[in-house]
């Protein structure tokens, strides 16, 4: 039945992806919810929360706030928080509640900017899409707000988009950084995991931008349109994962899939539950995954272990490739 999950828990939602991007930019991040969505993000989808706090707050909406649309009260709360905490800008992250009451993010942003004197980045997530869409939107909003000027290009600077904890583990992020340092880059800006807001302001100085997961693709293409910055779409942390014989199915993020497929000599097919810009097989329901695996005569299956209960009778080789957005397992801590 469409939309019914009998085995898997839902994957990381768009609002978690948005916070995943914004987490390290020094923003006052306000999740416009009653509390549960923020709890889900900080307590579950954001492994960095246990290691280093970021100013992620719930709007603490109550039924009357939603019914009466008390935006002024929210603005007041945000202004008060600005007095208590040093932050560079305000980020608004949507949830199902503002989606139901049709919150006017433009008006809300305008009111907050007027009150606090600091920029606002509003990501219009609604909890009904997957993390990569929210993360992608957050990148675009950051670029639109802060990447206003064209800077001189630093030939040894590279920008990495899409290396979030939801996409990949810490060791994979390190592999990506090392790869570009080995390539002769002296500045590796990891947007979302390490880079600051000043790095977004200077994004046009990157000689190359790289999307290492699906959520970075729209950002690097937009930067190409804005500043003519060349871009690549690949995940160097997966260069060692190749299949030179037999039939292999990879079910993961589209960039991960693409990287493995392009570097393998054997037959590799790719599928994803997330957004794709390629010809990967798009999966939505549990049954689709089960049918794809069980009817494909695959020698190798590469995916997150959380998917295994859907295919208890699979007899081929299984290669575990964790995806935090699926199973919330990784090597973050």
């Amino acid at each position: 039945m469409k939309g019914l999950r009998k085995v898997l828990t839902p994957f990381a939602p768009d609002q978690s992806g948005a916070v995943g991007v914004l987490y390290e930019f020094g923003a006052l991040i306000v999740v416009i919810d009653a509390g549960g969505c923020t709890g889900n993000i900080c307590g579950f989808d954001e492994p960095r929360w246990q290691i280093s706090s970021s100013a992620v707050f719930s709007a603490g909406l109550r039924d009357m706030d939603a019914i009466l649309g008390r935006d002024e009260l929210l603005v007041k709360k945000i202004a008060k928080a600005h007095e208590a905490i040093d932050v560079k800008f305000t980020a608004l992250v949507g949830t199902p509640v503002p989606a139901v009451i049709a919150t006017d993010y433009d008006a809300l942003s305008y009111m907050i900017e007027n009150k606090t004197g600091k920029p606002v980045v509003a990501v219009r997530t609604d909890g009904m899409h997957l993390y990569d869409e929210g993360a992608s939107d957050a990148y675009i909003r950051l670029i639109e707000t802060f990447a206003k000027e064209k800077h001189e290009v630093n030939k040894k600077a590279v920008g990495i988009f899409g290396a979030l904890p939801l996409d990949m583990g810490k060791s994979d992020r390190e592999k990506i950084r090392s790869y570009y340092l080995d390539q002769g880059c002296t500045t590796v800006r990891m947007y979302g995991t390490g880079a600051g807001i000043e790095d977004v302001e200077k994004v046009s100085s990157n000689a190359l931008n790289v999307a290492v997961s699906s959520c970075g693709i729209d950002a690097v293409t937009k930067l190409n349109e804005l500043f003519n910055t060349p871009y690549e779409i690949m995940d160097p942390s997966k260069f060692d994962l190749t299949f030179d014989s037999g039939r292999t199915l990879v079910v993961h993020d589209e960039v991960c899939c693409k990287t493995i497929k392009e570097r393998s000599e054997g037959t590799v097919e790719t599928a994803t539950f997330f957004d794709t810009h390629n010809d990967d097989i798009k999966l939505t329901e549990e049954d689709e995954f089960t049918e794809l695996v069980m009817n494909g005569n695959w020698d190798n299956l590469v995916c997150d272990e959380a998917l295994l209960p859907l295919i208890p009778e699979f007899k081929g080789n299984f290669i575990s490739l964790p995806h935090f957005a699926v199973s919330s397992t990784g090597d973050e801590s």
Partner: peptide
């Protein structure tokens, strides 16, 4: 919406709750 059920997987790690949660997104 999917976001509300996401963190339930913490609960389902407890054997007592395995196979007892279902989702209509």
């Amino acid at each position: 919406p999917g976001c509300c059920g996401r963190n339930t997987s913490i609960v389902t790690r407890n054997p007592e709750y395995k196979g007892r949660f279902f989702y209509l997104m």
